[in-house]
């Protein structure tokens, strides 16, 4: 007998999949720009630049929507790990991924309407969405309008620190994305969490 709860409003699911597609497109084209000329698997530079610019601007809009909608709906509260015992709960969650999951143990903190994320999830999502992605977005915008970059910084061209941050922060987002997609397979069934992100209903 399965138990279902409705967790995710339509706007959140629409945002999630738009964001996901844009991120993947940006990751592929970004890598093609950075490693230009070093392999046949890369998107040709001029096409990659055009797609990356368009998808980048789209991501800025999507991110703006995400921030505003989170404030208006109160959903931002989900991202705040609630004391006391945050570290303890993170530890239990980590131990579950490293051990319990192999034995088929149940999730230690199954999602509820009040607390959609476990503590580890909340912290990581918070860091990515409110610390790393803003860096990518802001440096990306400066990259797009290089006239706003400082002319010189630390004795080198001012675009270097901008590009460097963009590259590093972009890489962190990609590493997160890999882990994120993989952890998406750890629901009751491999597909349940993906289904939840489409229908909004969580199955237990």
């Amino acid at each position: 007998m399965s138990h279902r709860i409705y967790l995710l409003p339509v706007w959140l699911r629409l945002w999630h999949w738009t964001n996901a597609v844009l991120m993947i497109v940006l990751a592929i084209t970004g890598a093609s720009l950075h490693f230009a000329g070093s392999g046949p698997l890369l998107v040709p530079f001029s096409l990659a630049a055009r797609i990356h610019d368009i998808a980048g601007v789209a991501l800025v809009a999507t991110y703006g929507f995400f921030v505003v909608a989170n404030i208006l709906s109160g959903n931002w509260w989900q991202y705040v790990p609630k004391p006391p015992g945050v570290l303890g709960r993170c530890w239990r969650q980590a131990v579950y991924y490293g051990w319990g999951i192999f034995k088929g143990d149940p999730h230690p903190y199954p999602p509820t309407v009040e607390a959609n994320f476990n503590a580890l999830q909340a912290i990581v999502y918070w860091l990515i969405m409110y610390a790393v992605v803003p860096v990518v977005v802001v440096t990306g915008l400066v990259f797009l309008y290089p006239q706003f970059a400082p002319a010189k910084m630390f004795g080198v061209d001012g675009l270097l620190p901008v590009a460097f941050l963009h590259y590093i922060a972009g890489s962190v987002v990609i590493l997160f994305m890999l882990a994120h997609i993989y952890l998406g397979t750890t629901g009751v069934r491999v597909t349940s969490l993906f289904k939840m992100m489409i229908t909004g209903w969580h199955e237990e």
Binding site: L33, A163, Y167
Partner: peptide
């Protein structure tokens, strides 16, 4: 680098290798 950052041309092999290793490890 003294006068321009040129996407694709001015790369840091050490940083690239580090990112590559992290990517490989994660996968």
């Amino acid at each position: 680098l003294d006068s321009a950052y040129v996407v694709g041309a001015t790369r840091n092999p050490i940083v690239d290798r580090t990112v590559g290793v992290l990517f490989g490890l994660t996968v």
